[in-house]
Design a protein around this nucleic acid. Structure first.
Length: 372
DNA sequence: TTAGGGCTAAAG
DNA sequence: CTTTAGCCCTAA
């Protein structure tokens, strides 16, 4: 197509003649050594102009000719490697060799570009990686600091609580504190009793008794001088704390006057001695406990304080709410019996304070008595 | 993690 | 005192 437009044969001939003339003139001048700077510049400029024209007109022509002869099978592209080919193609003349070199140069250059790009992206990736690693390391340090602070805080608080207990119970060790609590008088100042005439205590005529009155009227049978039977006993000084759990439990297990009465009844009655000291609720002394808290959390508080005769203190029972039971039933329907962990994980909020073993035990009871 | 036996507080 | 229900322990 270009051949038609540019008439290469004619142009080529036109160019060749001045080039030859220029060449011979140059040779003459060089031979006679008569060339000066001025002349050399003129010749160089002329040569440049001609060379530029020649490239524009002949350069593409050469390529076209090469392409045509390649298609015709007269030549072979160097893409066919002489190493791979079983019949290496010889490069017949300088024109082919020149093209080959150009190709090689082009390939080399392209390869270098790609290599450079790869190296650049690798180093970029390495930089990103370094930054991320540094971030993670910083996070680890921060976490370790937080962990350390938390441990220290817990330790300090535990120490403060211990001292607090010791101050209130001079000469009382952690262990004997637990035993002494066994002899505590009833928590008769429970809020639920304070102003109610309606909750009749069947074991006792004076139904509207106040806590202090109760304490004096019903001293501990073992020893009336017992410091803990006195209203001034520190563990009795904080009705709010003691009542928290009792109130919570009363609310939890379908609160009713009869139940409250019954519960209070044991406090003054002959059965009291059978009640475990756990009932006294050491959690109340540990300020971190509240009515919302699970029993396990309370127990944790105790162990922190080292109160009680060992960490194997049995927990108070936490009754299952209807919601929990329904969720358990639904969970078994969904996941099947035995997948307690999954069921628990599906409802971590509702089952707060429960373990998978608790779920299993509850289901065992449901199966046993509700024939599920 | 689960199953099952045993213990015991809570309730009747 | 008995039963129930929740917790604990341990083997698999």
């Amino acid at each position: 197509m270009r051949g038609g437009l540019l008439q290469p044969a004619l142009e080529r001939k036109d160019l060749e003649r001045p080039l030859l003339e220029l060449k011979s003139e140059l040779r003459t001048l060089l031979g006679e050594k008569r060339v000066d700077a001025q002349q050399a510049k003129v010749i160089r400029d002329e040569f440049r102009t001609l060379a530029a024209k020649a490239w524009i007109l002949l350069g593409p022509l050469v390529l076209e000719e090469f392409a045509a002869s390649t298609i015709a099978g007269k030549r072979s592209l160097r893409a066919q490697s002489s190493v791979r080919s079983p019949h290496p193609v010889a490069i017949p003349d300088s024109e082919d060799r020149s093209f080959h070199d150009t190709q090689e140069t082009f390939v080399d250059r392209r390869f270098e570009q790609l290599e450079g790009a790869l190296r650049a992206s690798q180093s970029e990736l390495q930089n990103i990686l370094d930054v991320k690693i540094a971030e993670v390391k910083r996070s680890v340090v921060v976490l370790e600091d937080a962990h350390h602070s938390l441990k220290k805080l817990v330790k300090d608080q535990a120490e403060v609580c211990k001292q607090h207990v010791r101050l209130k119970n001079p000469g009382t060790t952690s262990q004997c504190l637990g035993l002494s609590v066994l002899n505590l008088p009833p928590l008769a100042h429970a809020l639920g009793l304070e102003d109610d005439n309606m909750y009749e205590d069947k074991d006792r005529p004076s139904s509207n008794a106040h806590c202090f009155q109760l304490s004096s009227e019903y001293p501990h049978p073992s020893n009336s001088q017992d410091p803990y039977s006195s209203p001034s006993h520190p563990l009795l000084l904080d009705p709010g704390l003691h009542n928290t759990k009792e109130t919570a439990r009363a609310l939890e297990s379908s609160w009713s006057p009869s139940k409250i009465t019954g519960r209070v009844g044991f406090m003054h009655g002959g059965q009291r001695e059978k009640r475990p000291f756990q009932e006294i609720d050491l959690c109340g002394e540990v300020l971190i406990c509240n009515s919302e808290q699970t029993v396990r959390e309370c127990k944790h508080g105790e162990s922190l304080l080292g109160i009680g005769s060992g960490s194997t203190q049995r927990q108070t029972q936490k009754k299952w709410s209807n919601e929990e039971v329904e969720l358990l039933k639904r969970g078994v329907q969904e996941h099947g019996k035995g997948h307690w962990k999954k069921i628990l994980n599906d409802n971590t909020d509702a089952f707060r304070g429960r373990t998978e073993v608790d779920l299993k035990d509850k289901w065992r009871n449901l199966e046993k008595y509700e024939r599920l």
